[in-house]
Structures are given as structure tokens and as C-alpha cells.
Design a protein around this nucleic acid. Structure first.
Length: 222
DNA sequence: AAAAGAATCAACCGCTAGGCG
DNA sequence: TCGCCTAGCGGTTGATTCTTT
């Protein structure tokens, strides 16, 4: 029953509202960055990583909470088909959404609905390291910074949202099943014969140049 | 009404890249 | 050039909530 007294005790688990308040106030005052020192300076007994994640996923302004819209769902499906499990890149095309949220949504809602039990999980990602290679490029447009103002929802709305969740999910399940009409049956990595069926041209406007760069075959194994 | 199982999602972990001294 | 530190990423875990029996 020895305890490691030398190390400062780092709190884990769910964040409490007062902790959120402390972190939010701190970041709004001092700005983002130096997460490793946030816990010391703010008095939070949290690790830097935890603080960064909490801010990025929940406390940051313009974070959109609640269910995904049909458009967002479609976007996720399409982007995942193109990019695989590059959640940060996908989230970057969805204003107000975080990579964690997109990832969870995919794993819980969309992945299981794939036709004929085909799973688009990490297993099917051809090159995990590609995301690392692309990171610096992708960071030029981080997930939250392109968000138009006015999409913030109350964090306290969560309990209500939970109550509505099952009903909302039922509707969304049906809608998403319809959206699968333009789901692409070709392998995730398109070759020259891959057929992409997009119903709306403006989708292209969301592509970054590096995505196009890779898509047209300059990315090695693409 | 209670218990068990399933589903969901917030948070953590390990790893890598990039910056800086 | 090397080593350390920080930020960011995707994968995984575990707690909570919901649904079914």
C-alpha cells in the first residue's frame, strides 16, 4: 500500500462543472497553449492533455452539441470513404464538430450500418501513418477555427439531449439508411475505375488542396 | 419494478511530428 | 545534430444511460 507521494496527484474521470468553469476562465484569460502549465496555474488537478482535450472538445466557443444533421452525416460518410479514419480532417469539414465526436459518431451510428456488414474501422485504413504525414497540412485549418459564429449550444442541455436521444436516433437511422444510396461500394482507396457518386457538387468546395492532391494519385498508394 | 444486456460517449493512453535550445 | 518538450492524432477503455426481458 505504498503511494507515490513524489508525483502530484492528477485527477481523472469526468469533468465537473466547476472544473470546466476554471479551465474556461483560464483559457479565456491566458489563451490556449502551454497546457502542461495550465493545471498548475489554474489550480486544476488535471493533466495537460486532459485540459487540452476538454477545451478542444467541449469548452471551446462555437462547439456544436447535439445530434448530427443529415448533411453532416452525409459529409462524414463521404469524407471517411475518401480519407479513412482521419477524424481530425473530417471534423475540419464539419463546423463545430470535433474529431472525437466524429469518431464516436462513426463508430456508434454509421459504422454498423454499412452494407453487408462491411466495417470501415481502423482495420481497413490502408495507411495509418498517412494521417501523421498529413498532420501539418491539416492543421492549417483546425477543426474549430473555421466555425461561423452562432452555433453554440448550452452545455447544460445534455441531460435533455439524452432524453431525446433514442427517438432522434431512430429518425436519423432511417435517414442515414437513405443516405447510403450514394455510399460507394468501391474500396476505400479509389483507383482509376472507382465510381464516386456525389449528389451535390459544392462538396468539392470543402476539399483542401492536399486532399485533392492525394485523391488524384499523388499520395503513393492511392 | 428490477435486472441484464446493449448502446453511447467522454476521457484516457500511447505514439508521432515539429519546435526549440 | 541531438535530445527534450509540447501538441495533436487515432485507438481504446470505462462509466453512464437506455432498452429489453
Amino acid at each position: 500500500m505504498e503511494s507515490k507521494e513524489a508525483k502530484p496527484k492528477v485527477k481523472k474521470g469526468l469533468w465537473k462543472p466547476d472544473e470546466d468553469l476554471v479551465l474556461k476562465t483560464y483559457v479565456e484569460t491566458h489563451g490556449e497553449g502551454n497546457w502542461s502549465t495550465v493545471s498548475k496555474k489554474s489550480g486544476l488537478m488535471r493533466g495537460g492533455k486532459s485540459c487540452r482535450l476538454r477545451w478542444k472538445n467541449y469548452l471551446r466557443p462555437n462547439i456544436k452539441r447535439g445530434g448530427m444533421s443529415q448533411e453532416e452525416e452525409d459529409m462524414i460518410i463521404r469524407m471517411h470513404k475518401l480519407l479513412g479514419n482521419r477524424w481530425s480532417l473530417i471534423a475540419g469539414r464539419l463546423p463545430g464538430r470535433t474529431d472525437n465526436e466524429v469518431k464516436n459518431y462513426w463508430n456508434t451510428h454509421l459504422n454498423k450500418r454499412l452494407p453487408s456488414g462491411k466495417r470501415m474501422s481502423a482495420d481497413s485504413t490502408p495507411d495509418q501513418n498517412k494521417s501523421k504525414r498529413l498532420r501539418s497540412l491539416g492543421d492549417s485549418q483546425p477543426a474549430g477555427n473555421t466555425i461561423p459564429a452562432g452555433s453554440t449550444e448550452e452545455l447544460e442541455g445534455k441531460s435533455q439531449e439524452k432524453g431525446e436521444r433514442s427517438a432522434v436516433n431512430d429518425v436519423r437511422t432511417q435517414q442515414a439508411a437513405q443516405s447510403m444510396n450514394y455510399y460507394i461500394e468501391s474500396p476505400m482507396v479509389p483507383d482509376n475505375n472507382a465510381t464516386f457518386i456525389f449528389d451535390d457538387e459544392p462538396f468539392l468546395a470543402y476539399w483542401d488542396s492536399f486532399v485533392l492532391f492525394e485523391s488524384i494519385g499523388c499520395g503513393g498508394d492511392w
